[in-house]
Design a protein around this nucleic acid. Structure first.
Lengths: 142, 142
DNA sequence: GTACGTGCAAACGTTTTGCAGCGGG
DNA sequence: CCCGCTGCAAAACGTTTGCACGTAC
């Protein structure tokens, strides 16, 4: 096995992930992919990801963060969660699932699949089809 | 019975509504209340309401539209529906209910209460309590 | 009369865009 | 080598705010 480049062992995995999505494997995208997909499911805003990315040696501009999040989203690597008027959230968990939203600190929490079950859901009105079903449970401090 | 002011017969109804909410009955608020509550349940954005208000004789500034929507919301006369990243929706239907969202034209449609039933919903995590449960079914053109 | 509402314009925070230069394929 | 990506700054967008004036009570 070849010696890994300084960007870390995960590089080749992330490299493949980007290539499969039809995206060029630039330094910034590899680094962001590593932050996003390197450690389980995550919910990020541009601001959060920018803060993390800024801590790494590699510099990234906020514009690139936005561009990259949008590209990853279009490429199907991320889901968008519309839950807060003030910022966009992206979720690395691609399965249809639902969320708690803690209003006091703008934090998103996955609802465990076996804790929720939908009852009867309506058919889409004539001329439309259902794209997705999203359940949001807003939480306040007890 | 006294002769009604030129603002129309509904004025006294709206006047009471505002007074009960602890809001002063200004010309603008009465006009906006009439647009919002005068004809069944509605889903409005600031932009939509501004367009309608501008058509009436009475002038209103966009800032007043925003202020008024927020005040009505705080006073409990409107519900906020977070469903679109680009604009805030307000709903005159105060009951907990759910929505279709037509992505192609950013339109909100109420889901009839008897067409939907929730199954098992999770308890709020420790330290929190459920504030609201919102189901959004996103629609695309068939 | 006075506290609150309104209108305007300017400020705000988030997100997008135009463009010159860099770098992956 | 070329086209796409990056960074920066500027623009765009919906929304909020500061202040002078007007008005409900």
């Amino acid at each position: 096995m070849a010696i890994q480049p300084p960007t870390g062992q995960q590089s080749s995995v992330m490299r493949e992930k980007l290539q499969q999505a039809g995206l060029r494997t630039t330094k910034q995208r590899l680094m962001l992919a590593h932050l996003l997909f390197g450690s389980g499911n995550r919910h990020v805003t541009a601001e959060i990801l920018y803060a993390e990315a800024s801590k790494t040696g590699l510099g990234v501009s906020l514009a690139t963060i936005y561009n990259t999040l949008n590209q990853f989203h279009e490429a199907g690597l991320l889901r968008e969660v519309i839950i807060d008027q003030n910022r966009s959230y992206f979720d690395t968990n691609l399965h249809e699932h639902h969320h708690f939203f803690v209003e006091s600190d703008a934090r998103l929490i996955d609802i465990n699949e076996d804790e929720i079950s939908l009852g009867q859901m309506p058919d889409a009105p004539d001329g439309f089809q259902t794209d997705s079903i999203q359940v949001v449970i807003r939480l306040k401090d007890a």
